[in-house]
Amino acid sequence: MRIEKIEVFHLRLPMKFAFKSSQASLMHRETLVIKVTDELGNSGYGEVVAFNEPFYTRETLPQSKELLLKEVLPHLLQKEIQHPFEIHSWPDMIYPMTGAGVENALLDGFARRHHQSIMEIIFDEETQDTIYGGMVLGDLDLTTLLTEIEKYLREGYIRFKIKIKPDDGFAKLKAIRARYPDLMLLGDANRSFKADQIPELLKIDELGLICLEEPLGFGSLSAYQRLQEQMTTPLCLDESIQTLEELMGAVELRACQVVNLKVGRVGGLAYVKQMIEVCRKHKVHYWIGSMMETGISKILHVHLASLKDNYIPGDLSSSRRYFARDVIQPEIVVQKGRIHVPKGPGLGVEVDEEALLYYSIDHRVLD
């Protein structure tokens, strides 16, 4: 296919509440949406999910936007693309979230051109028609946490991830476990524990978590190896794994038992597929995260979560939990705890361009 037109929408979406982790608090989500159109008029959409500040990974949204507009997208315009994965060999594809956004847009257009879903293009295996949603709760006070858990249990959610920090993370998780002894529960520390706080981490072992995500704010994969040797709770790596090489290093060291996979963080679906293959080969569990993204990116995670050997339900909840209006139709909806996996061509959903323009603070067109 030949790309004849490219659009970049810089969105700023107000969030319905402040989402807090140990590293940041967000009231708005800025993101970039890329739209590519080929010579036959097929369009595809992808999202660059980097944050404005480098609290999650080093890549930032301003860096991504500059690279896209100055180098990557001019190179793509009028380019003959045999398969979207070929862009990963380009020398200017230096940022993973930027590369993922471009790849995802091309994959959506490529799949629509061939009247196939994205999963049919990438995975030749049976998937589930519906998946369980998973709730992520930020760094809230305990009373609010317990209220929120009760609320979302009534909506059918069965798996809860709690953002924690060293000074009160164990106490919160212990209180939740006492109230809900059978709850599918995990903690996410976002690299907030220091070396002298390891004893506090070891106390978490008594709580029966399904995993503990990214606790360490120091050291390397060898530090995780040493911690995993001391803990029965499975350690889950997220932002520590951005490349296939880093995943292989973690596997070889036995630094974790679980990996959280996010399309943007690892650079695109080409790399997600390779990482899933590595996890399957080495018997490391994987499951699907999310980036507080619009439905353009999140629906890809819904698709991936439909693979039958996911370890646990992913970080996937209704679009309306975060935003008053999403940019896809139909929006992602959790009903009785489950999400329907769309089966149409490409992403399986349509992009609401009126919503894109409504949220846009900058709109560029290359043709």
Results as ranks from 00 to 15, higher is better:
Pro54Leu: 01
Glu155Met: 14
Gly156Cys: 06
Tyr56Ser: 03
Leu261Pro: 13
Asp315Ser: 05
Lys262Asp: 07
His83Tyr: 07
Gln116Asn: 05
Leu221Gln: 02
Gly249Arg: 08
Ile3Trp: 10
His83Lys: 06
Tyr45Phe: 15
His363Ala: 01
Tyr180Arg: 03
Asp38Thr: 09
Glu66Gln: 14
Gly348Asn: 06
Tyr311Pro: 09
Ile204Leu: 15
Leu261Thr: 07
Gly138Leu: 06
Val333Gln: 12
Glu126Gln: 14
Ala100Gln: 00
Ile81Tyr: 05
Gly249Leu: 08
Asp167Pro: 06
Val333Trp: 05
Pro181Glu: 00
Leu235Val: 02
Gln225Val: 05
Leu186Cys: 15
Glu229Pro: 05
Thr130Glu: 14
Met292His: 13
Thr37Val: 13
Leu67Cys: 12
Ala195Arg: 15
Leu11Asn: 07
Met291Gly: 08
Lys343Phe: 04
Ala305Gln: 14
Tyr56His: 11
Met275Val: 13
Val102Tyr: 09
Ala324Val: 13
Leu145Met: 12
Met291Asn: 12
Arg226Cys: 06
Leu107Gln: 09
Ser220Asn: 05
Leu61Asn: 04
Glu350Tyr: 08
Ile276Phe: 08
Pro345Lys: 00
Gly219His: 05
Leu269Pro: 13
Glu331His: 10
Asp182Gly: 04
Ser192Thr: 09
Tyr271Gln: 13
Pro330Asp: 00
Gly268Ala: 00
Tyr224Asn: 12
Glu80Ser: 12
Asp238Gly: 04
Lys16Thr: 07
Pro215Arg: 01
Tyr311Lys: 01
Met291Lys: 12
Ala100Val: 01
Met231Trp: 02
Gly156Ile: 12
Met15Phe: 08
Glu7Cys: 09
Arg325Gln: 14
Ala50Arg: 06
Arg338Tyr: 11
Pro74Phe: 04
Leu69Phe: 08
Val251Pro: 12
Arg113Asp: 06
Asp129Ala: 13
Phe9Ile: 12
Ala305Val: 09
Gly134Asn: 01
Tyr224Phe: 14
Ile339Phe: 09
Thr143Cys: 06
Met231Cys: 05
Ala250Phe: 06
Tyr322Cys: 07
Leu137Glu: 06
Gln23Ala: 11
Glu252Gln: 14
Thr31Val: 15
Met119Glu: 02
Asp326Glu: 04
Leu356Glu: 04
Tyr45Pro: 07
Leu73Lys: 11
Met248Gly: 07
Ile149Arg: 02
Pro166Asp: 00
Ile339His: 07
Arg177Ala: 02
Tyr45Trp: 13
Lys161Gln: 03
Leu221Asp: 01
Asn190Gln: 02
Ala189Asp: 00
Tyr359Ile: 02
Ile176Met: 10
Asn104Arg: 07
Cys211Glu: 02
His282Asn: 14
Asp182Tyr: 13
Glu293Ser: 14
Lys79His: 12
Asp196Thr: 11
Ile118Gln: 02
Lys283Met: 12
Leu269Asp: 00
Met184Thr: 15
Leu307Ser: 04
Leu307Thr: 06
Pro54Trp: 01
Thr143Phe: 12
His303Met: 07
Glu120Phe: 08
Gln335Arg: 14
Thr232Val: 13
Glu80His: 12
Tyr358Asp: 13
Gln116Ile: 13
Val72His: 08
Pro342Tyr: 00
Gly267Ser: 11
Asn190Trp: 07
Leu142Phe: 04
Lys165Pro: 10
Arg112Val: 03
Tyr271Gly: 03
Met93Asp: 07
His83Glu: 08
Leu77Glu: 01
Cys211Thr: 14
Glu4Tyr: 10
Phe55Ile: 12
Phe193Leu: 11
Ile3Thr: 11
